[in-house]
């Protein structure tokens, strides 16, 4: 029996603030796993890398389309209920320690990104030396998504992503 988890593409970069995952979403799949790992030198005032979705022309899909609900479990023992930020320009991943490059990881589950009926929904679990974060994102657009953009106000000394599609037939 043929397997249904298929590698769509991999991406890598270094010494940059963004990583575009262009053209990863197609009509072949309606569910995706995206695995992200990297080292980030954070901007101390804005330490969370962010996620945006791209259209088929690799343009960002709206600056006020992102609602997210997250629960951040910091390594200092605090729980941060980061749910108040509706209509943002992007969704968040996990706070990364400032200073020299620190490790960060994220696992995104992307549901029906090609739908022109539904908004875009992403479930994410993120980890760094600063803690763990669970994030649910609703991107309020019915335009079909073509890709993702990972971004930081600091610098990714290295950043890697692997995208897998899950076939349903």
């Amino acid at each position: 029996m043929a397997g249904k988890l298929e590698l769509v593409n991999t991406f890598t970069g270094s010494s940059q603030s963004t990583l575009n995952l262009n053209g990863i979403f197609t009509d072949d799949y309606d569910f995706y796993h995206v695995h992200i790992r990297g080292l980030q030198s954070a901007d101390a005032s804005n330490p969370r890398p962010t996620v945006k979705i791209l259209d088929d022309s690799n343009a960002e899909l709206g600056a006020t389309n992102y609602d997210y609900a997250s629960l951040e479990l910091s390594d200092n023992g605090t729980l941060t209920d980061n749910n108040q930020n509706s209509d943002q320009s992007s969704s968040v991943l996990i706070m990364v320690d400032s200073g020299t490059a620190h490790n960060m990881q994220a696992h995104l589950k992307v549901f029906s990104p090609r739908s022109t009926t539904f908004y875009k929904y992403i479930w994410a679990a993120c980890n760094s030396e600063a803690g763990y974060n669970k994030v649910g994102t609703m991107v309020k657009t019915t335009t079909a998504a073509g890709g993702l953009k990972i971004e930081t106000a600091g610098t990714f000394s290295e950043i890697h992503a692997a995208v897998y599609g899950v076939k349903h037939e």
Partner: peptide, 16 residues
Amino acid sequence: MDIVFQNASGEVSTET
């Protein structure tokens, strides 16, 4: 389970 949805109030919710 890992879950995300728009709730009855039109807000995003996520569950684990």
